Each structure stands twice: as structure tokens, then as C-alpha cells.
Amino acid sequence: MVRLAGHQWGLVAVVASTPFLFALLLAASSPGLVEPVLGTVLGGASWGLAVILGLLGGAVFAGCLGALSRSPAMAASPVRRVFGLVLATFVPLGLCIVPALCLMLAGPALAVRLERGVGVARTERFVPARELAERLRYQLPRVLPRLPRLGAW
């Protein structure tokens, strides 16, 4: 990997710390969310995995920045440099940061549902077609206004 400049390492640090900062913001905005995270293995594991994904995203972003630094065409044009930086940001964002944020939201919610004893998968009961038709028959109006009759054609 090519040596990165100081401001580039700052960008890598911002990308890598995004899940950690998001965890702090979630904990500050809703303190009730911290209890399922710290109290259950599933909630803590989801946040731990999210932080690891954030660090992996930072490493991927550093690799992309290193590849951009080696390219002489990127150094020559400021427009290409900005476009390359935006594309280099989308790679770790899509691969690591967004899944990490989803884990941070879904892990505690799933832990709370499992703790309460609510099943994760809902089972729908089978309703026979005749019973459904009978219910619909009483819910629909008797006469539909201003609709042509099929026999009139």
C-alpha cells in the first residue's frame, strides 16, 4: 500500500469510526437501547460485529485511497480526483458501513423480541377460500354505484 497523506488518514479514521459514533448517538438518544445491547449476548455481538465491520470498512477505504494515490491520471485532474474519492467512498460504505448500521439497529431489536418470548417468525393460519369469500361478501356494499352491468353490453 502506498503511503497516505495526513488528511487521507483523517478520512480513513472518519469512515472507520462511523459505526462507533453511531452507537454513541443511539445510546445518547435512547438509553433504553443500551440495556438489550449490554444485557444480552446477541445485542452485544451485533454491536461488536458492527464495530469490526467499521474497521474493515476503514481498511478497504485506505486501500482504495492508496490505489487512487498511485494513479498519475488522478493526480493531474481535480475533477477526476473528486470523482475517484466519491467512488472510493461508496465501496466501503456499501460493503461495510451500511451493513454495520443495520446490525446495530436489528441486533437489539431482535434481542428484545427473543427476551420477551415473542417468536421471530410469524405463522399465518390458513383461511379457506369459502370463509374468505363469506367475509368479503358482508364487507362489500350491496350495490356498486354507477358501474355498468356486464349483461348490458
Rank of each mutant, 00 (worst) to 15 (best):
Y138T: 10
R81L: 14
E134G: 07
L65P: 12
Q139N: 08
L105S: 12
V120H: 10
A76D: 15
A133L: 14
G151T: 06
S71E: 14
L24D: 00
G54V: 07
G94A: 14
A45H: 02
A16M: 06
L150R: 09
G94Q: 05
T89Y: 14
V34P: 01
R80F: 13
R70K: 10
L26Y: 01
A5M: 09
V98H: 05
A100R: 06
G57L: 08
V14Q: 01
L68Y: 11
E124S: 10
S69P: 04
L140H: 06
V98Y: 13
E115M: 04
L24M: 04
M1S: 12
V12S: 01
P141H: 04
L56W: 11
A111S: 15
P36Y: 06
V14P: 01
L11H: 00
V79D: 13
G66V: 08
L53K: 02
A111L: 15
V118Y: 05
L38N: 03
R149F: 05
M104R: 01
A13H: 00
M1G: 11
L65D: 11
L110E: 02
V127L: 15
L56P: 02
L105K: 03
V2C: 03
R81M: 14
E131H: 08
I52D: 04
L87V: 12
V120G: 09
G151K: 05
L24K: 01
M1F: 15
G84C: 06
A28K: 05
L87R: 13
L65S: 11
L65V: 11
G63N: 12
M1V: 15
L85A: 15
F61K: 01
H7D: 08
L136N: 13
L105Y: 13
G119N: 12
L147Y: 06
R116L: 13
L11M: 08
R135M: 07
A45Q: 09
G32V: 01
L38G: 08
L147K: 06
S17Y: 01
W47T: 00
R3T: 06
V51K: 00
P128N: 13
G94I: 08
P31M: 00
L55D: 02
Q8L: 01
A16G: 07
A73H: 09
L132Q: 10
G44L: 05
R113T: 09
A62G: 12
A133G: 09
F83C: 09
L24P: 00
R70C: 02
L105F: 12
W9E: 03
L147E: 13
V79S: 12
L85C: 10
L85P: 04
P92C: 08
L21Q: 00
P108V: 12
I52C: 09
F61E: 00
E124T: 11
A109P: 02
L68P: 09
G54N: 04
V12F: 00
W153L: 11
S77G: 07
T18Y: 04
L93H: 06
T40N: 07
A28V: 02
R122Q: 13
V82L: 15
G10M: 04
A106V: 15
R3M: 02
G54P: 07
G58F: 06
P31L: 00
G39D: 03
A75M: 14
A121H: 11
L24E: 01
A5P: 02
G151L: 02
L136I: 08
L144Y: 09
P78T: 14
E115G: 14
L140I: 04
S46T: 11
